[in-house]
């Protein structure tokens, strides 16, 4: 009886090895809340890069872009009036946060087993401050950029 050869190939310590931990769910949550879907995507894609999964996880970026651009497009084509009529003129911020948290729910589900793996084995995530702040800056910059283009 032999062991499949690929099981006996080293997985750790190579230049293309995945990292042993990802940024915490808290980092993704806070970034999505303050920076919207694009900020959430920045954290999720940073995690995908750490896990060497960018080839399978890139759609998260496209979904985040669509979740930002779609509502903005609608907002500047009658949506703002509709929202103002039903929820008040300053409801945009609430919508932005709802979209951000909705995207975080998607990204969390996408990487759920890694988060659970880390929780079960008590693995420490890397510090999320720098990536979190950068993600919020990216999210807000993309939102303002898209708003300028679509308005």
């Amino acid at each position: 009886m032999t062991t499949p050869d690929d099981l006996l190939q080293p997985t750790l310590g190579r230049h293309d090895s995945a990292a042993n931990s990802i940024y915490s769910a808290l980092t993704g949550y806070a970034a999505s809340f303050f920076g919207g879907p694009m900020a959430g995507a920045a954290v999720a894609l940073a995690n995908a890069w750490r896990l060497k999964r960018l080839r399978t996880d890139w759609p998260l970026g496209v979904i985040a872009l669509a979740a930002t651009a779609g509502p903005l497009w609608w907002w500047y084509r009658g949506g703002a009036h509709w929202v103002a009529a039903y929820a008040g003129a300053d409801a945009r911020e609430v919508l932005f946060r709802v979209l951000g948290l909705g995207f975080f729910a998607l990204a969390y589900g996408w990487h759920r087993q890694y988060y659970r793996n880390m929780a079960l084995f008590g693995l420490s995530p890397p510090s999320g401050w720098i990536i979190g702040v950068a993600a919020v800056a990216i999210g807000l910059a993309v939102e303002f950029g898209l708003a300028a283009v679509l308005s």
């Binding site: 009886m1 099981l7 997985t11 750790l12 995945a18 793996n117 084995f121």
Partner: peptide, 21 residues
């Protein structure tokens, strides 16, 4: 060790192989 380093699929295959033995 694979599970502690987030290599879940390899850990699963190793467990499967061990249980086969």
């Amino acid at each position: 060790l694979m599970l502690k380093t987030l290599n879940l699929e390899k850990a699963r295959r190793l467990a499967q192989e061990g249980l086969r033995q």
